[in-house]
């Protein structure tokens, strides 16, 4: 998978986009831990839980892509459509994060009030098992970035590559989340703003690559589209 490294960078820098939503969770996680090392341990276990959920969701998305592709009645190249769709969403998200869309900053995320009561029980528990479960459930919190990368995972059309895409995306989000949970805001406001811009650009780049890949699939289809009902 040529874009796995790009997905990683997308997760790495794109996660600054999600600090607003998930950052407080990471902070609660480490709030009553004095030793930095113990806190780091909790942060990593928490992220492992998140990555687990991302991977499962990625596998499901990959399976869905595979299943759609195998449908004999499919009129369009599903894989290409998914890749292009994912790309468009990523570009829109990147532009919105950076505030470059005409209608201003897009607010992504819904009220997490329902999850809050559950998550709080797990987040504040001393044992690592609860912390892991907190991570597992955090992975389900609605997030535009996750959905965009899920579309990328679906476009791989494979259970394992879908899972891998999302796992790599999750890995990319670990550094910033752990940093937030451990040290609060180590970066200055100016640096954070710059990182945000770079992150947004990175998300846009991932989107462009995804679109290019989707277009590539379409191109391949061109002359030898034997499976397409319309071209027969």
């Amino acid at each position: 998978m040529i874009e796995l490294p790009l997905v990683f960078v997308g997760g790495l820098l794109g996660s600054s986009h999600c600090i607003g939503m998930c950052g407080p969770l990471a902070l609660v996680l480490g709030s009553n831990r004095q030793q930095p090392l113990a806190n780091l341990g909790r942060q990593l276990v928490f992220s492992t839980g998140r990555i687990f959920t991302y991977a499962v969701l990625g596998a499901a998305a990959g399976f869905a892509g595979l299943w759609l592709r195998s449908q004999p009645t499919a009129l369009v190249n599903i894989q290409a459509a998914l890749a292009i769709l994912a790309g468009l969403v990523l570009i829109a998200l990147g532009l919105a994060t950076a505030g470059w869309l005409p209608w201003g900053r897009l607010k992504v995320g819904v009220s997490s009030c329902f999850a809050a009561t559950w998550l709080k029980t797990f987040l504040t528990a001393p044992d690592l098992m609860s912390v892991f479960l907190a991570g597992v459930f955090t992975g389900f919190i609605p997030c535009g970035l996750v959905y965009a990368f899920l579309a990328v995972a679906a476009s791989t059309g494979s259970l394992w590559f879908g899972a891998a895409t999302m796992a790599v995306f999750g890995l990319g989000t670990v550094p910033l989340m752990a940093l937030t949970g451990c040290g609060g805001s180590l970066l200055s406001l100016v640096t954070r703003t710059r990182v945000l811009r770079v992150a947004a650009l990175c998300v846009v780049a991932t989107g462009l690559v995804s679109i290019a890949r989707g277009a590539g699939y379409l191109d391949l289809l061109g002359p030898t589209a034997a499976g397409c009902l319309m071209c027969q």
């Binding site: 959920t53 499962v56 596998a59 499901a60 559950w118 797990f122 892991f132 479960l133 597992v136 259970l159």
Partner: peptide, 21 residues
């Protein structure tokens, strides 16, 4: 008790992946 439900969901997610495989 809540951990119980959480663990069950975690195991179910695994089972789902194997089923999809």
């Amino acid at each position: 008790m809540l951990t119980r439900l959480g663990l069950a969901i975690f195991f179910t997610m695994n089972v789902m992946v194997f089923a999809m495989a």
